[in-house]
Computed example of a mutant assay.
Amino acid sequence: MLKAANLALLLLYPVAWSAPLLRAGLLPLFGMEEISVLTGLRALWQSDLLLALLVAFFALAAPWLKTLALSLIQFGLLDRRALPAVTLLGKLAMADIFLIALYITLAKGIGVGRIETAWGLYLFTTCILASLAISLIEARRGH
């Protein structure tokens, strides 16, 4: 069951990256623009390359590589001694969720525009938390 759930995450992550995380607009009268991990990354790439690379690592590479490495451990293709490094990748992926939540809180506090969370934020958060839970269960199985 854990193997299937972990493999499902490898497919769900790309969906979460393209799903709308939030909707933002300057004023309630104007249309709301949907922002996903990929559209946000594209905008960052044009304005701040270093920040874009950091977001790409935390939002894309860390969670997906962690899930892939955990699958390799589960199927016996990677030694279980790699599990602490895999768990570290999962913790780095959680940093992205924290940053998104911080940005939403700051933007709402300023009160200039309007921000609404969208279903992609919940999907992305669920993927990260499910991956964390799977790795914790997997770590306990090894002891």
Rank of each mutant, 00 (worst) to 15 (best):
G142A: 15
S47Y: 01
L83S: 11
L2V: 11
L60I: 14
F58L: 15
L41D: 02
E33N: 09
A139W: 12
I97G: 01
L99G: 12
L92V: 04
G25N: 09
P63F: 12
Q46E: 15
R114K: 11
T125N: 00
I137W: 15
D79F: 07
E116L: 06
G31S: 13
L49N: 04
F30L: 14
T87P: 02
I137A: 15
R114T: 05
H143Q: 14
Y103G: 07
D79E: 10
D48N: 15
W64K: 11
S135V: 05
A85Q: 06
D96T: 06
A118I: 01
S71N: 10
T117P: 00
L44M: 13
G111C: 07
G25K: 14
G142P: 04
G25P: 01
K3E: 03
E33R: 14
G142H: 14
M32T: 11
R141Q: 14
L27Y: 05
L2T: 11
L53V: 11
I134K: 06
L41Q: 06
L132N: 10
G109K: 07
I100D: 02
G113P: 02
A8D: 05
L53W: 04
A61D: 00
L7C: 01
A133S: 14
I128P: 05
R140D: 01
P14S: 11
T105H: 08
L26V: 13
G113Q: 03
F58T: 12
L9C: 03
K91C: 03
I137E: 10
L65A: 03
V15P: 05
D48L: 13
I104H: 02
W64A: 09
L51N: 02
L10K: 15
E116N: 06
Q46W: 11
G142N: 15
E116P: 00
L88A: 12
W64Y: 13
A24H: 09
L60G: 11
K3Q: 03
V86A: 06
L78K: 12
A85F: 03
G111H: 08
L121S: 07
A130P: 08
A130Y: 14
F75Y: 12
A8L: 15
A56M: 13
A59R: 06
V55Y: 07
Q74A: 14
I128M: 14
L102K: 02
A52T: 06
D48K: 09
R114M: 05
R80F: 13
L68Q: 07
L53P: 04
L78C: 07
A24S: 10
L49R: 11
T87H: 09
L54C: 10
V55T: 13
A52Q: 03
E116S: 08
M32H: 10
V112N: 04
A101N: 12
G76V: 05
L29C: 01
D96F: 12
A95Q: 07
L89C: 06
A56H: 09
L132E: 13
S47H: 04
G31K: 13
W119D: 00
M32D: 04
